[in-house]
Amino acid sequence: MDPGKQALDQVLLVTGISAYVTGTLVLIGYFLSRSKLLKQIGIPLAAIGCLAQFAELGARWNMTGVWPLTNLYGSLSLFSAFGVLIFMIFAIKYDLWFIGFGVLGIAAISLGYATTWNEGYMPAVPALQSYWIKVHVPLVIAAYASFMVAFVVSLIYLLKASFEKRLGGSAIRGSAAGAGANIGVSMSAAYAAPPANVGAIKSDTPRIDAAAARGDFWGLWLAGLPSLGKLDILTYRIVAVGLPLLTVGIITGAWWAKEAWGAYWQWDPKETAALTSWIIYAAYMHLHTRSTWRGSRTAWVSVIGFISIVFCYLGVNIFISGLHSYKM
């Protein structure tokens, strides 16, 4: 193995981890202080980490001549990279930077954990030597990454809703939930209340808004987050990216399985765990069509869905043996 290339690989890996760790700290600062400067520092850190990761995977492929996603190290690296990429796409479109600390934190942890599975450079077993792996694995990992981002938004939703409840209100569920009154320092102009004369959608966190009006620190801080209705819709939009990706991921996996093992579906633990996650997110989509379920309840379903993804991704690989448990 070319030592120069190996050194480059290491440098890119260290750059990725360092950028995520620093980015997490900076964006925690942004989350707490709403300082624009911290946001402006956090964004390039996220971008640098993500680019370094893709470059590292590319360098590894170039160096070994072997597709780098045949082991847990490669796939966890891609999970972090996709997580940050998908987060950035949504952040640019919907000004989602306030969840950056969560996404970058998870990316840093998963990349750090990935390095414990880094066994060096190994060729793939015959079943993995297929062009399908180049399609199937990235799709599934991108789906996992989307669900991770949705999970973080759901947690923020639940945080805000629980504060509203603690302040004595019950967070308004349902379609009437809408933009919060624009009190306090808003996370973004994109979440500002609609212009006057457009029929106002009532604030869904009146207690938090009242607390903010009193100058209460937490009230001000929470009122600056997007409204519960917006957070709910953001989660929906992200899950709406993840679910089709998971569906195509499962379909391409089935196609590949048909070529490799003779049957497109063998009830292998990995397949079935992925099916369970798919069922949970399909349930999420159906529940989201009911206005009475939109909100805290669907946020919990998104959290449960991501727990099931973690089990499907890591639990099955590590603890349950089957056709997919290529642990190396």
Binding site: S175, G178, P194, I201, G229, K230, I233, Y236, T289, R294
Partner: peptide, 21 residues
């Protein structure tokens, strides 16, 4: 003008505001 969507109102809030504007 009033707007309805199959996924509630919040999902359309900004676009509605911009449309009216």
């Amino acid at each position: 003008i009033a707007a309805t969507t199959v996924k509630g109102y919040t999902i359309y809030e900004e676009q509605f505001a911009a449309l009216v504007e």
